[in-house]
Design a binder for these strands. Structure first.
Length: 262
DNA sequence: ACCCAGGTGGCCC
DNA sequence: GGGCCACATGGG
């Protein structure tokens, strides 16, 4: 079986569905994970805004920003907020000056080009929509694909830092090009938004908790059998030299991990 | 006191 | 087309 399919099978079995992208329920302020079949206009806005806010930023900080936006009634009337109001509200998500500009230009674009409806933007077919998103300041390939996949429900695979790190360690490819990574996954997986969405979310889950940048918890990783670096760290690969920092995680790390994950 | 986080754009060669 | 750098807050 192809490794890319195998990874999905293993992670899905281990972690179950992740129900991305988190959105805020009626009457609440903070986003939660729960899969919706059909998104309303507010939820589409929230996903697109979240995709911009989470650029190189911990999701917890984005949650704080989205909570602020909800309390201010932002998603009910996105056209009624100016730059400095946005800056204040999204401050916790970091890079708030650039991100507020990115948001404003996104909002203005929808106002002027799509008669104020984000659905009119998102209802296009995937390829022109992707091009249009990429033409906006502050929307690069990952953010565009996140919006395509999670807000527009189109099968467009999202490649992020976790995807690259995990696939690098497993030994899939060492390419530096986003398009190569994206094609690698899309050419193997069924062209299905739900599968793409779960796959990406599962990689994030693994990357956050186990396949961490420093001191990855390979001893707990469900992918150890198919991961080159993991096997090297564990000493499974004969003759492979362990490098500094390749030690198996400490006891305290194991305990910490167990506490966090049930 | 570090290091890190669900990237992007600008500038330089 | 690639290699650097600024951008900012909050948690571990």
């Amino acid at each position: 079986m192809n490794k890319i399919l195998k990874i999905y099978e293993i992670l899905y079995k281990k972690f179950g569905p992740q129900n991305w992208w988190p959105t805020t329920r009626e009457g609440k302020d903070a986003p939660e994970y729960s899969r919706k079949v059909k998104l309303n206009e507010k939820e589409k806005w929230e996903i697109a805004v979240g995709a911009i806010l989470t650029q190189n930023t911990a999701w917890g900080n984005v949650e704080k920003a989205i909570t602020n936006l909800n309390r201010a009634g932002f998603f009910k009337d996105v056209f009624n907020f100016n730059l400095s109001e946005l800056e204040k509200l999204i401050r916790p998500s970091g890079f708030f000056r650039q991100k507020s500009r990115y948001l404003k230009s996104f909002i203005d674009h929808i106002a002027s080009t799509h008669r104020g409806s984000i659905s009119r933007l998102l209802n296009q077919s995937a390829s022109p929509l992707r091009k249009e998103l990429l033409s906006l300041k502050g929307i690069g390939p990952e953010t565009a694909d996140s919006i395509l996949l999670y807000a527009a429900s189109k099968p467009s695979f999202v490649v992020d830092a976790y995807t690259v790190r995990i696939a690098n360690r497993i030994g899939l490819t060492d390419s530096k090009k986003y398009s190569i990574w994206k094609t690698m996954f899309e050419s193997v997986l069924p062209k299905n938004a739900e599968v793409y969405g779960e796959y990406h979310a599962l990689l994030v889950k693994l990357g956050k908790n186990i396949c961490r940048k420093n001191n990855p918890l390979c001893f707990e990783c469900a992918l150890i059998k198919i991961c080159f670096e993991g096997r090297v760290r564990y000493g499974y690969v004969k003759g492979a030299k362990r490098r500094r920092g390749d030690e198996v995680a400490s006891r305290s790390d194991r305990k910490k991990f167990k506490r966090k994950n049930d």
